[in-house]
Design a protein around this nucleic acid. Structure first.
Lengths: 152, 152
DNA sequence: GTACAACTTCAAGTTCGCTTGAAGTCAAGG
DNA sequence: CCTTGACTTCAAGCGAACTTGAAGTTGTAC
């Protein structure tokens, strides 16, 4: 089978070689090695990397991607069922994200020119789910957080 | 004017005191100091913090929020025009985000069961805008990136 | 056989939006 | 006065997803 070097794979997949090594360190992809210890990837890895990038776009973390990919053959072509299952679950995820944004948008639309400058009872500022933030690290955009505000 | 301590502001705004100090270090809010060097915030800061959190939800980084807030009075009530301008621009932003997600979703929907397992011409994997990633740091979810893939 | 690009590993750096901790000061109630 | 909790600053840490750099090795084309 024709094998790709890490540079070739990087070019074709549109990612940096450092990213590929990083993915490998996280177990998302695997490589064979030449006698001189250089990585060689089967063609199928190209598809796998594409899948990873697509999943990221849908909003999955690399950890989640890893879990999703565990159900897929590392080498060779995933079955139609594999792909159907993944794409369906990703679409559902997208649906959820879209719904969230639309809700936010609708609230914002109501707000435009509503005169609620005191923000007293403005939907956008109401404590619908003012949960405590746990842990540190960056907060991702579009989280499901909501701002709490009291009467001004 | 009644002033709030940092703890009071934190409770009422639903954020940690450390976050407030951080915002202040970034110039997003300002405080007066007591003779003993403790922060005291005017009530208006509560509104300002809420605005910051709302903007973050819409997807702005703190840097962008800072720029948006520069056009607002630090103290006192923003005018109806201020708020209309901000909420309108944020809504537009949301509209854009929603549109992007919907496009992705539609592509994904087409993909379900389309049998394009080789991913040769699958819309989701096509290099619509395979821009080079500049710089390091974390990549935010829902960026405007698209995966590049060649013929498999 | 040698030049040179592409590869190797490993540690450390980057960005963002904070949090945590140390070491100390202030404010209010009893 | 004394305790206690809330406050102060400053430095360092976190988590994600990589990138960058150093120092050395491999593969290939001439």
């Amino acid at each position: 089978m024709e094998m790709l070097t890490i540079g070739e794979l990087a070019d074709r997949a549109g990612v940096a070689t450092s990213a590929l090594r990083f993915y490998e360190s996280r177990g998302l992809i695997v490589s064979e090695r030449t006698s001189g210890n250089q990585r060689r990837y089967p063609r199928a890895t190209l598809r796998r990397v594409s899948l990873i990038r697509a999943a990221q776009e849908v909003g999955l973390s690399l950890g989640e991607v890893a879990i999703a990919l565990e159900t897929l053959p590392v080498e060779g072509t995933p079955t139609k069922r594999d792909w159907e299952r993944l794409s369906r679950s990703w679409r559902n995820r997208l649906d959820g994200q879209i719904a969230e944004l639309q809700a936010l948008r609708d609230e914002l639309t109501d707000c435009i020119g509503c005169g609620c400058l005191s923000l007293k009872s403005c939907a956008i500022f109401n404590p619908s789910d003012a949960v405590a933030r746990k842990g540190s690290g960056p907060r991702y955009l579009l989280g499901d957080e909501r701002v709490a505000i009291p009467a001004d």
